[in-house]
Nucleic acid binder design. Structure first.
Lengths: 183, 183
DNA sequence: GTCATATATAGGACAAGTCAAATATAAGCA
DNA sequence: TGCTTATATTTGACTTGTCCTATATATGAC
């Protein structure tokens, strides 16, 4: 149940509409916490109910009124409290590993193909990660806080390290399957 | 939607009841695919409906009748087909990273505490992994197939590598936060 | 003596998130 | 002319999985 707190985190930087929040998610933490648009709006409703945000309705013609959400003092307090609390455990599910676990049922080329596809996805992910610092520079200037930027960079570093480790695993797995064949 | 296929994978080794399947999950792939008991029974019902397994009811006194599930030829075919198919993407969600992303709002000791707790959990996980090979030896003897055992080992290797990478990240993050303080 | 554990299945309630559609209009592009 | 994209929110249906409870009894631990 981290989504409400991610929303509070963004609203703590600046008041925003649900629509703008969706963009904030998509251009920053999407890689480790994708957020569905419908889910954001429902969360906003819940946060309002709890008194952690307030809504400022800005009338518009042609379009639905903008509902700009502002974090309250109670919301800020709740955010800080939550941030200092131990993280929820990760979902350990790795769909590929089910296939690998039962891959003894598969001819070696098919097992290798599975791993090659996976490795290709990981390489693509690394390239995506490599392009992030440029985009992030824009936000870094806007926020003017090296401390914030430091922690943002940590999350990217996590993604790079884990992806590299997975890639190395896949590459060695492929080599080992080939060795298996030779014997 | 991998659970039905994991169930087929186990039933392909041997016919089993839902209860035995639950134990099979818990003593093997739980680390990358935990399975809820209720979910297993519901999946079994669905697999039966699709004709991928058949039920053999073994009457018992005192206890509910055993319902032993057998994989069918159609089920075996479906399993092989699925195994050769590209893996679903992983859920990228890492709850800790939301806290880290917004940790600029937190005093450094609290950010470090967060990472220490995380690192401790990772170390405990590595110890659990270290104990797996002994338990696995029992299954390896039972199945008498070095090829199957090779793929089982691959899944463990994945867990170890990824956990180590996460741990290295956390340890370096802690060092970097301490450096931040000194400046 | 009581409590946990093992055997064995089933169903209801609920949480989180996904997907798609509805509503309304302007701007830019081919 | 028509298609896509941007702006902005809401709702409904659905999926996957979790948690808890119910039912029944035997055995071993403390």
């Amino acid at each position: 149940m981290s989504l409400p707190y991610a929303v509070l985190g963004f609203l703590n930087y600046a008041p925003m509409t649900g629509y703008e929040l969706k963009k904030a998610f998509d251009t920053s933490i999407r890689h480790f916490w994708p957020a569905d648009q419908a889910q954001i709006y429902r969360t906003l409703k819940e946060l309002t109910r709890r008194g952690w945000v307030t809504v400022e309705v800005v009338p518009q013609e042609d379009r639905p009124n903008r509902k700009v959400y502002h974090i309250t003092d109670a919301g800020r307090e709740e955010l800080r409290r939550w941030l200092g609390t131990p993280a929820d455990p990760e979902d350990p599910r790795v769909p590929l590993l089910i296939r690998i676990f039962f891959a003894g049922q598969l001819p070696s080329e098919k097992a290798i193909a599975l791993l090659e596809t996976y490795a290709a996805a990981l390489r693509a992910r690394l390239e995506t990660y490599a392009r992030i610092p440029q985009r992030a520079a824009h936000y870094a200037e806007a926020i003017q806080s090296p401390r914030e930027v430091f922690f943002w960079a940590l999350t990217l570093d996590y993604g790079i390290r884990l992806t590299r480790a997975a890639l190395e695993w896949a590459e060695e797995a492929i080599r080992n399957i080939r060795n298996l064949e030779k014997q």
